[in-house]
């Protein structure tokens, strides 16, 4: 999977000089201080979730005495629950999330390539339109999607309500949108000289796109893939209307239903479920991080 050209060592001006410990502290110490503060801001609300997940029978925000009780009962009982098929939800979420991420990134990249590299009438209007379409208030989206999948499912049962494919298709409806614009901006920074050179070497447009350009825009592909993965992992509004059977549902839908009736909701089980549900996102980010930040810079390809 590694890129053909090794990542270029970056030249970092200030730090490239030899520095003593004091300067180093001044150079990076404040960064850590700021980073720790920001981490506290980012993490604090999540500590409540973690604390609740470790406390059987705990409430979500009822107490500020975090981590008074620590045990893994919630995790084990959720994983072995008959009522909540957690592992099935987990698998469904991964299948739907990964498929959506890959497919929507590809679809978006294809369109972004056309918008960036080709000149055609309606290009600007098209670009504008795909972003504007996403701004429509989604008040009736759920009703509309329900009716639409009902009709589709009538003819193609495997694409209708209560199918993973149906849900994935709905998600792909958003593939052409602001993420396309994000990729479009990135494509624009890749010099057209690369395309030209490849063309002179006799490569067709498809080959240029798939074998050369896609590699050069790896960072943004990784970002977009991560964003769509997270979106489909977290969506419960659309998914709860499409996926009816408990065994077909995703983590977000299943977990949300656990607590949607707030009277006597099993918050601690829910929190344990949410903690485990965040793991795929973290792993995917770990995996994609090197593409996001370690990818080739445009200038590295001469």
């Amino acid at each position: 999977m590694s890129a053909p050209v090794a990542p270029k060592t970056r030249v970092v001006p200030v730090a490239s000089r030899r520095v003593g410990p004091v300067q180093r502290l001044r150079a990076t110490g404040w960064r850590h201080l700021v980073a720790l503060l920001l981490s506290a801001f980012a993490l604090f609300p999540l500590l409540y979730v973690l604390s609740t997940s470790l406390n059987p029978g705990g409430t979500l925000t009822g107490s500020n005495h975090l981590f008074q009780t620590v045990g893994f009962d919630n995790y084990t009982s959720l994983l072995s629950s008959d009522q909540y098929p957690y592992l099935t939800w987990f698998r469904n979420s991964l299948v739907i999330g990964l498929t959506t991420a890959v497919a929507s990134t590809l679809i978006g990249a294809l369109a972004a390539y056309a918008f960036s590299r080709m000149r055609f009438t309606g290009r600007r209007m098209g670009l504008l339109a795909i972003v504007l379409v996403q701004m429509f208030p989604q008040l009736l989206a759920v009703v509309a999607i329900f009716l639409l999948l009902l009709q589709i499912g009538d003819i193609f049962p495997s694409l209708g309500l209560n199918t993973h494919l149906g849900l994935i298709m709905v998600y792909l409806g958003g593939a052409l949108g602001v993420n396309t614009y994000l990729m479009y901006g990135f494509f624009n920074t890749v010099p057209t000289a690369i395309d030209e050179a490849a063309k002179i070497d006799g490569a067709g447009h498809a080959r240029i796109f798939f074998t050369i350009i896609l590699r050069l825009v790896a960072p943004i592909l990784a970002v977009v893939a991560l964003l769509s993965f997270i979106f489909s992992m977290n969506d419960f509004v659309i998914a709860s209307v499409v996926l009816v059977d408990v065994d077909k549902q995703t983590l977000a839908v299943g977990l949300y239903h656990m607590v949607s009736n707030q009277r006597g909701a099993p918050w601690s089980l829910f929190a344990a479920g949410a903690v485990m549900a965040s793991i795929p996102v973290v792993i995917l980010f770990l995996f994609l991080q090197k593409y996001i930040v370690g990818g080739l810079t445009a200038g590295a390809v001469k």
């Binding site: 329900f146 009716l147 009902l150 709860s240 009816v244 059977d245 239903h257 949607s260 009736n261």
Partner: peptide, 19 residues
């Protein structure tokens, strides 16, 4: 079928006659 208790009533009204 387990449903979201918060939207079950509106969902039912919207979908009841859809077949």
């Amino acid at each position: 079928v387990g449903r979201d208790a918060g939207t079950m009533k509106d969902d039912f009204i919207q979908q009841a006659n859809s077949g």
